[in-house]
Structure formats: structure tokens, C-alpha cells
Computed example of a mutant assay.
Amino acid sequence: MKKMGAQFLIVIVFLALASSFAFASDPSPLQDFCVAVDDPKDALFVNGKFCKNPMLATAEDFFRKGLDIAGNTSNKVGSNVTQVNVAQIPGLNTLGVSLVRIDYAPYGLNPPHTHPRATEILTVLEGTLYVGFVTSNSDTGNRLITKVLNKGDVFVFPIGLIHFQFNTGHSNAVAIAGLSSQNPGVITIANSVFGSNPPISDDVLTKAFQVEKDVVDYLQAQFWVNN
């Protein structure tokens, strides 16, 4: 009986771990593809989305051009992110992947941010980038892990962790990144904390950041770039 009990416990632990991994990324598709449509007329309902009838799908549902065009980096942070997710390619629905092109002006920054639903893998196409992410509070005590990347280098940012990229060169830089979600989401830290609508209370922010109220008021008055 003790042996059976131990085996049962192992099975339960295994199933619990399997369940946790299953929720670590987008749900698995239940058919070959599920082209998202806004109008439910003549559509199927699969994986929580209205989908075009597969017999009506065309190549255009899985296609987007223009990723060779540089984004406009004339903003305060000097970077631009061109997204290619389910909003741009409906055929990505349920497939669990997306893509971005990131352009950086000289000394341009993709500010500290997180993707709540995706791990990111970034490849530098041109230039030199200083990149990094911060580990979580409890696991390893907010360790900063950084690397200088050159053309052809690849770096991974784990799901949910705060990360950034900074162009350290005198010329433009370009990177392509893949993300493990059709809609990874993005939370830019400064925008969320100091640019929320309505603003977070001064009492909260002064205590959280251990600064005076006038510092918080100054930061909240800035125009935060929605990159």
C-alpha cells in the first residue's frame, strides 16, 4: 500500500507540473489554423475566438509586407517597435507566435518593459545593443543580467521579466524579435507607473519610490512614449 501511495503521489506531482507548463504559453490550437475575424457571421467559434471558415481562408490571412521599412525613431526614447501579431496577421490566431521589428536611433532605447504572455528571442541585424533583464524578487533577488550584442547575436528575455535594449553606437541599429504568443502584450514600466489614467496616488508613489512629492509630480507630468 505504501508503494502504491508513493506512486500515486508521483503521478499527482507530475500532473500538477504538466498543468503549470500548459498554462505557460498560448493554448494549443484545436485545428490547422483559426483565422481571426471581427464579424461572427459565417464564422466558427474555436479556442475563444470567432474564426473564418477554413475553406474561405486565403494566403492574405497569413501574410504581411513592409517589415523591411525602418520605423520612425524621432521620439524621446529614440526607438520604434513595428509589431506583427494577430492584429496584423489574422492567421496567427491560436498559433502562439508573433514578431516585432525594433529600430534604434543612435543611443536609442527600448525602455524597460515586460511581456506578460511571452518569452522573447531577439536577433541583432545591424548595430550594437546593450541588453538586459532583471530577475524576479524572490528567485534570485532582482539580479541584472546583461550582454552587449553585435550583428548576428541572439539573446532571450524570459516571459514576464523586465528587460530593455539600448543602442550604444553612433549609427542606427535594427533587431528582429520573436515572441511565444500571438498577442504577447507589453507593459512599459515608466508609462504604467507614472503615466496611468487616472494617475496613481502621490501617497502610493512617494512611499514606493522613497522620493518627495514634487519628484512624483514632475514624472507624472512627462509625456511618456507609447513604444
Rank of each mutant, 00 (worst) to 15 (best):
N191M: 12
S180Q: 05
N197Y: 13
N172E: 14
I176H: 03
S196K: 12
S171F: 09
Q182W: 07
A177E: 15
S171A: 12
N183F: 09
L179T: 02
Q182Y: 13
V174P: 07
A175W: 03
A190M: 00
V186A: 01
Q182N: 12
Q182V: 09
A177H: 15
A173H: 05
F194C: 00
I187V: 15
N191D: 07
A177C: 14
Q182E: 15
H170T: 15
V186F: 00
L179K: 04
S192M: 04
G178D: 06
P184I: 01
T188C: 01
I189A: 12
I176E: 01
H170A: 14
A175D: 11
V174F: 10
G178C: 06
I187D: 06
N172F: 15
N197V: 13
S196C: 08
G169Q: 08
T188P: 02
S196F: 08
A175P: 12
N172I: 15
V174N: 05
I176W: 08
G195I: 08
G178V: 07
G185N: 09
S180P: 02
I176Y: 05
S181N: 02
T168E: 06
I187F: 10
N191W: 08
P184S: 01
S192V: 05
I187Y: 14
Q182P: 07
H170K: 15
N197R: 11
S181C: 03
G185M: 02
T168Q: 08
S181P: 04
Q182F: 07
F194Q: 02
G185E: 10
I187R: 11
H170M: 12
I189H: 05
G169K: 03
G169H: 05
S180K: 02
A177S: 15
H170E: 15
T168F: 11
V186M: 02
S192K: 06
I176R: 08
I189F: 10
G178Y: 01
T188H: 07
N172C: 12
I187W: 10
S196A: 15
S192G: 13
A190F: 03
G195C: 12
S196R: 08
S171N: 09
S192N: 11
A175E: 06
G185R: 09
A190H: 00
A190W: 00
Q182S: 14
I187K: 03
N183P: 07
A173L: 03
N197A: 14
V186T: 02
I176K: 10
A177G: 14
